[in-house]
Amino acid sequence: MRTLLRFLYRYHFFLVFLTLEIIAVTIGFRYNKFQQAAFVKFTENISGYFNEKISAFTDYFSLVETNRKLAFENAALKNQLQRVYRSDELFFFSEEDTLYRQKYFFTSARVVNNSIHNMYNFLTLDKGREQGMRPEMGVISTEGVVGITVGVSQNFTSVMSLLNKNFHLSARLKKNNYFGSLSWDGVDYLHAQLTEIPHHVDIHPGDTVITSGYSAIFPEGIPIGVVEKAELRDASFYTASIRLFTDFKHLVYVDVIGNLKKEEQRNLENRFHD
């Protein structure tokens, strides 16, 4: 107690100054709108800075949820887009080849299992018959072609990956529409092979390869990859090595394409071709 008193006595000048100054400054803040606003702005800048830092950190925790929502939204928007175009289809269907791709709708799915190191690779998606999945639907990612659905259970779908030696797809060069057959040789998950390109065709490294749309599984014009090198094999056909756009090692969300008119096209083709 005595030390406290001695302390108070010793520093009474400074303590009185501090008290009066605090009172004055408090009055200054309380009754002057400008200082009040400036002070609030100042403290808000500080707290805003920290909130931003914290949020930048905590955002990572919700990335999974955010991704899922965005994938759903993408699918919904694409569906909407297709629906708008499909109304045009009635008018252009028989004539305009380019509108073939408008016969499709999309739904998003999550890859729950994936392999890339086997000769016959498959993926598993977290949607099945109950969610509208059927065999022989095309599967694409935002980058390009992924595979074709082969087996469907109640809630899961098995997808034959493009990285499967049984996978064959009609593909064409974007610049001149010459088409060939795309398959995988089982060597490297980054590259596939495009064969049956006639020898007179102008094909060079850097050319983009897209789906042809003939199979009625994939819409026309889905990107597949770029030509990395093209070799003339047995004098009449090129075999090209295609660097794939889809990174199969990092697949999380894919879009599944449903073709409403597939049955119709098949029936027609079967009736007249056999």
Binding site: V16, F17, L20, I23, A24, V25, T26, I27, G28, F29
Partner: peptide, 23 residues
């Protein structure tokens, strides 16, 4: 200090700048 407080506060009252001259 106290006289300074009173002086500043009086000026503040007249100038409507409460607390600024006091401080």
């Amino acid at each position: 200090l106290i006289l300074g407080f009173i002086l500043g506060f009086t000026v503040d009252l007249f100038e409507h700048t409460y607390g600024i001259h006091t401080a």
